[in-house]
Design a protein around this nucleic acid. Structure first.
Lengths: 253, 253
DNA sequence: AATGAAGGTTGCAGATATTGCAACACCGCA
DNA sequence: TGCGGTGTTGCAATATCTGCAACCTTCATT
């Protein structure tokens, strides 16, 4: 809608791939070097872009800070977190929290028992939307037509032989998930990983987030993991309760 | 440098404070609603801004993904990480990795022993630059005039009675740190927390990052923590070696 | 149920801000 | 010392953005 801003913002994903110099940026944007320079300068002033010692540009620090703050403003996450931790303590497996946004599902929190380090590494990354248990729950709650529209638009990569193969299979699965109120991913993304997930609902009953417990086959079988379902659902319900009972917002308007 | 982009980017920190509606954004930008709308739309198309169900805008998902990727492209971090983990395993304390960028010092990695959860919560946040041990190391390595310039510009909040009180004290401290090649923060930020830090240097000898070990008084006294100094320095040197020995980059130019 | 208010959206004409150019400055290198 | 590759700046043309005003939608009120 705004050409200048559009161009400027296009620089960000480009730099996300790795550092680039002025010429490269200009080329990939299809603009004159001087134009690219001015855009980069503006991004730079806002700290979104950083100029390293070899003069090349890369993404800047402010970006982290922004992502940070954005994260902290997600109140579902804040409320859910202690519950996730408790669940993790009682079952020992990896616990995820995810939300849907603009055709993407992304993890916004994760508690992992075994590998305390780099646990943020997945947070913020889009989820394998066609197979992840949390994605199924989030999409299943979309209005019929939107759900269909999204399903049609998606790619259906066959991560494993049990991945969702195509839109109609996906829609059928969503229908099932919608009815039963929980979802699983049994080796659909990684051959040896299974997940059980339950929805978190707002006061109006709409699904606002989904949480899951994941564990590799070698630790517990899929059947064993399924025995955790009641616990997962109880946790999700507890979060739902707290979330919807909460006083609205403090906003000044 | 580019007004339109400048305005658009100003929206981001604004939304970082919390969701806002069109009118609020327009007011705070000092532009007409329609203008704000078009800027927001552009940001939206790039996924940097998300429109929640109540029509208000907040920061979007792509931001996480970008911050993600930016993070992963920091090769110091990648190289350092296993070393940090090993250090953490051997001493049990919190280990930090930080870099300097544009008048700010920020943590880019952290390994924490006791509290496995939410460890990313600090990563990306600016460090208390006037007191943190890692900040001292990073600033101490700046060229004389730049160091002075930065020191003059800073605020010197008295977090505790042992915080660095003003620019000249800070510059003296930096000088000392510069000479001895390591730094400490003894209760300068949190009364009961001490840190020891060592620099990580690139092939040219310049400090590219700094790492530290932090522990509360109740666990080890400052003196005990100082006994870890050799280990910390050795770790930092190991990272330096690996970092500078590494093959440059794969870049296409 | 109708009315009004508040916020969001669109088309348009004016004018400002952006663009590409070309010349210049800079750096490293032969 | 001269050369190639990059980054940087001033300028004129104009494409782009802006603010306006009218319109639409939604929601709350009477």
């Amino acid at each position: 809608m705004s050409q200048t801003v559009d161009r400027a913002l296009s620089i960000l994903p480009l730099l996300a791939e790795g550092p680039a110099d002025l010429g490269q940026v200009a080329d990939r944007l299809g603009v004159h070097k001087s134009t690219a320079l001015r855009l980069l300068r503006t991004l730079h002033e806002h700290g979104l872009v950083y100029r390293q010692s070899d003069q090349r540009y890369r993404l800047g620090a402010r970006l982290f800070a922004l992502a940070q703050e954005a994260m902290e403003n997600l109140d579902v996450r804040e409320i859910a977190h202690p519950h996730l931790v408790r669940l993790n303590e009682s079952c020992g497996h990896t616990v995820h929290l995810a939300v849907y946004e603009e055709n993407e599902v992304l993890y916004i929190d994760k508690v992992e028992s075994r590998y305390p380090v780099r646990m943020y590494s997945r947070i913020g990354k889009p989820v394998a939307i066609t197979v992840a248990a949390v994605a199924k729950l989030l999409l299943a709650d979309l209005p019929e037509h939107e759900r269909r529209a999204v399903a049609e638009k998606l790619d259906y990569p066959m991560y494993t032989s049990r991945s969702t193969p195509h839109a109609s299979a996906f829609l059928r699965e969503l229908e099932k998930v919608r009815e039963q109120g929980w979802a699983t991913d049994l080796g659909g993304h990684e051959e040896s990983i299974n997940c059980v997930a339950a929805p978190i609902r707002g006061a109006d009953g709409r699904v606002v987030a989904a949480m899951s417990v994941s564990a590799p086959n070698v630790v517990v079988t899929a059947d064993e993991l399924l025995t955790l379902l009641p616990l997962v659902r109880r946790t999700a319900d507890a979060i739902s309760g707290e979330y919807s009972g909460r006083t609205p917002v403090k906003g000044t308007v």
